[in-house]
């Protein structure tokens, strides 16, 4: 097997093992119903995490996506309340996400500021803006929203593929194509692998950085739209902590936090792993949701440790040569 597929194989293995464990422990677990719900419930996180995957592969980090999801939700609710069609509102919000991300990327590049601190400021800004728009949960009432949540494709067995899951899978497909079959995607990997070399090899650093964060903004805004449609409401606290879930999904998906290495499709499985842990805890009934965070944290630790050892041996090798 090729080196680049080892991490993703590990991720898929963990996912299958967890799924089978659930099946062994609880009745009715091994079903398309559970699988369909898993995809539907985690769709918005995974969508947002796809954008984070690009950011992390480029060697950056984005901490503002949770706030973006909340912001998109409340503004969408407001716009629909003012008579906008939900789709128009969604398009406006996605355009906003792209613009916002682009500006963030531009600031990161021209000012040479660490991404984590600038996106931290973004976290404040967007969450504060949520509260400025609305303090309470605002329902989104529109026939389209009802149709969106009602529409689903039946799966063999008793499960369904909901519309949000379908959007997520399409977004994933787009992400895979961008990452692996466009020059921009290749540039993202080059930037994360070695910024100086990439610049010497002719990668346009500023344009690529702006595009990376714009893409991140696109995906987090899309995640916000899906979350708003899924819950049929805009809530100013929505998406709190989702940035961490997204980063966890990316890391569990086998992407190196040091940048340069990772697969977009891994993020799907990474997101599903955390979702699966929550589902198992749900099925158990005796465990609390506290377990989910702890187990995700533990898995995160193990994955980072595994990455560390992989890189460690490679560096040791290089050092003994150089």
């Amino acid at each position: 097997m090729k080196e680049r597929y080892i991490p993703i194989a590990g991720t898929i293995f963990v996912f299958i093992a967890l799924f089978l464990t659930g099946g062994a422990l609880y009745k009715h677990f091994l079903s398309t119903l559970v699988l369909g719900d898993l995809l539907a419930d985690n769709a918005f996180i995974i969508i947002a995490a796809i954008g984070t995957t690009f950011v992390i592969i480029s060697g950056g980090i984005d901490l503002s996506i949770g706030s973006m999801i909340g912001f998109v939700g409340v503004v969408m609710a407001g716009l629909v309340g003012h008579g906008w069609h939900p789709l128009a509102a969604a398009a406006a919000m996605i355009a906003f996400g792209v613009l916002y991300g682009g500006i963030v990327g531009w600031i990161i590049d021209i000012c040479d500021i660490q991404p984590f601190i600038i996106t931290l400021a973004g976290l404040f800004l967007l969450r504060g803006s949520c509260f400025m728009v609305s303090l309470d949960s605002v329902p989104i009432k529109h026939s389209f929203v009802d149709a969106f949540s009602a529409w689903r494709i039946p799966l063999p067995g008793s499960g369904f593929l909901t519309s949000s899951a379908i959007v997520m899978l399409l977004a994933l497909l787009a992400g895979v194509v961008i990452a692996h079959f466009t020059r921009f995607g290749t540039n993202v990997y080059a930037l994360g692998g070695d910024r100086t070399s990439a610049a010497l090899m002719g990668v346009p650093i500023r344009r690529t950085t702006v595009m990376i964060y714009a893409l991140g903004g696109f995906y987090s805004a899309l995640g916000g739209v899906i979350y708003a449609l899924y819950t049929a409401s805009g809530y100013p606290l929505a998406g709190s902590g989702v940035e961490l879930d997204a980063i966890a999904a990316v890391v569990l998906g086998g992407t190196l936090l040091t940048g340069g290495v990772g697969l977009v499709v891994g993020t799907l499985f990474g997101g599903l792993i955390s979702g699966l842990i929550a589902t198992i805890i749900d099925f158990d009934g005796t465990l609390t949701s506290a377990w989910a965070r702890v187990v995700v944290g533990l898995l995160l630790f193990l994955f980072i440790l595994a990455q560390r050892t992989l890189i460690g041996t490679r560096n040791a090798l290089r050092q003994s040569i150089g």
């Binding site: 680049r4 194509v177 692996h180 079959f181 466009t182 020059r183 290749t186 540039n187 990997y189 080059a190 994360g192 692998g193 070695d194 100086t196 070399s197 990439a198 010497l200 090899m201 002719g202 990668v203 340069g260 290495v261």
Partner: peptide
């Protein structure tokens, strides 16, 4: 070596001009 070690040899050799088919890179 001013190349990107995490990229494949192909990507390193074709970074600024990859051959395309139908607008997408043909690896």
């Amino acid at each position: 070596v001013n190349l990107v070690p995490t990229l494949s040899v192909t990507k390193n050799l074709t970074l600024e001009r990859q051959p395309r088919r139908f607008g997408l890179i043909s690896w």
